[in-house]
Design a protein around this nucleic acid. Structure first.
Lengths: 236, 236
DNA sequence: CGGACGTTTGAGGAACATCAAAGCCTGTGG
DNA sequence: CCACAGGCTTTGATGTTCCTCAAACGTCCG
């Protein structure tokens, strides 16, 4: 485990108020007075790629706000394989299921270097019973992840493998924090995202590269969006 | 449109307080005083099978609590086919996306005779700003539908068609309001649920019937759970 | 009775999984 | 500095699954 805490001493109110992703994050609507209700520190952590924030069925004590990087929510299947349920990025929340249960429902694993704020569940519960400002933002977050899951279900599980991968690449490109590039997951993860095998994922990614629809340098990718959209429609 | 309103004059507080599914529903935690905050009536409606509660991108003014029956949330794909995103049953909420947006995100279509309570969005917003009791229940509902979507993604989109259908039958059986039977969707809908074709769905359902793993009378079905679980594991 | 609709069944081919092996990059240790 | 081990990716050959197109069947209802 190479993760480390960035700031031992929590700056408190000012820190959150000045947070660069505050408008995206859970505390977006909180007022100065609300912050005074906090008793435990909100700690910042930094994770390297491949580290685990929490595991399925693990005791759930924290919710995480993602400041940068990317996280996959994973579920292992009875046969030993795994399926990626969702990808989380800047501004997303990991582990909100703790608000209604005592255990996590997925494994949360970083795909890149990722920075998070770790919020104790009790603090969220305390805020909720003392100020109404948090609920609104929780509702927004819920809506976001629900909508993401729906897109996944309706678009990323239908059509040929080629169409699915084209769809995934567009999804990744459109949700990237960079303007014209994005993080390309491993072939294994692409397979787990789309319910196809690693080999099929590799074959199609390689084909896209040969056709110059996709350029990669390490895991930084760029794509030809119009052409990929044609593939999604035509299937060719 | 054959739907009809059951009770023109809303009984108000007493009606909700005595609601047989109150413990399941949105208003579970509301107190007597909270009900006094309501200004518009909560109307009850009854729909026949195949009717539409609302359509995707339609102006969203109501949330629906399902009292009995079953609803499919549908999204149409660019190629003209459709995909069922989720199934809703007794106690579930349809159209909660209206709390963060002005349009619905799916088509909601009844699969059976279905009774609902129709709640104006403004009433929910009014309650939310005046009492904290509703939020908790909204969170629970959110969690439920999110969890449902996750199960869908992790279990109903992987494996062979035979495994998926076996999985679906078990899901339907375990979530039915009857003890030992459940509603079996049309082959078209089974296809749209599992991202397979109507023909494949038909072939496998017919095979299950021949093997006596599944008995149907019209759309009422019974299954041999242990055998189907074996199929999910073994694939045979 | 005849038409509409949902279901079943068949034949053929395309897409994908599986098994297997080779290539490539990176980091480590001699 | 080179050799080598390990992980990830690519490619190939083969077989199975499932989609596609097509037609027949049953059931319900006007």
């Amino acid at each position: 485990m190479k993760s480390f805490e960035i700031n031992q001493a929590w700056g408190g109110t000012e820190k959150c108020l000045k947070c660069p992703i505050r408008n995206l994050a859970l505390f977006a609507d909180l007022q100065q007075a609300d912050f005074n209700l906090l008793h435990q520190p909100i700690n910042e952590f930094s994770f390297e790629a491949g580290e685990s924030l929490y595991t399925e069925k693990g005791t759930a004590k924290f919710v995480y706000t993602i400041r940068s990087g990317m996280i996959k929510l994973v579920r292992y299947l009875p046969n030993g394989s795994y399926r990626i349920i969702r990808l989380l990025r800047k501004g997303d929340l990991a582990g909100i299921e703790t608000l209604n249960g005592s255990t996590y429902l997925h494994h949360a694993i970083t795909l890149q270097k990722t920075e998070v704020c770790r919020i104790p569940v009790e603090e969220i519960e305390a805020l909720n019973s003392n100020t109404p400002h948090l609920y609104k933002q929780l509702t927004v977050q819920w809506q976001k992840s629900q909508n993401d899951a729906d897109i996944w279900l309706s678009e990323l599980t239908v059509g040929t493998s080629k169409q699915r991968i084209a769809n995934l690449l567009l999804y990744l490109a459109n949700n990237s924090s960079e303007e014209d590039s994005f993080y390309l997951p491993s072939r294994d993860d692409i397979g787990a995202l789309l319910a196809i095998t690693t080999e099929t994922a590799s074959r199609i990614v390689a084909e896209f590269k040969r056709q110059s629809l996709l350029h990669t340098e390490h895991q930084v990718a760029q794509i030809n969006k119009p052409e990929l959209m044609l593939i999604i429609k035509a299937g060719n």
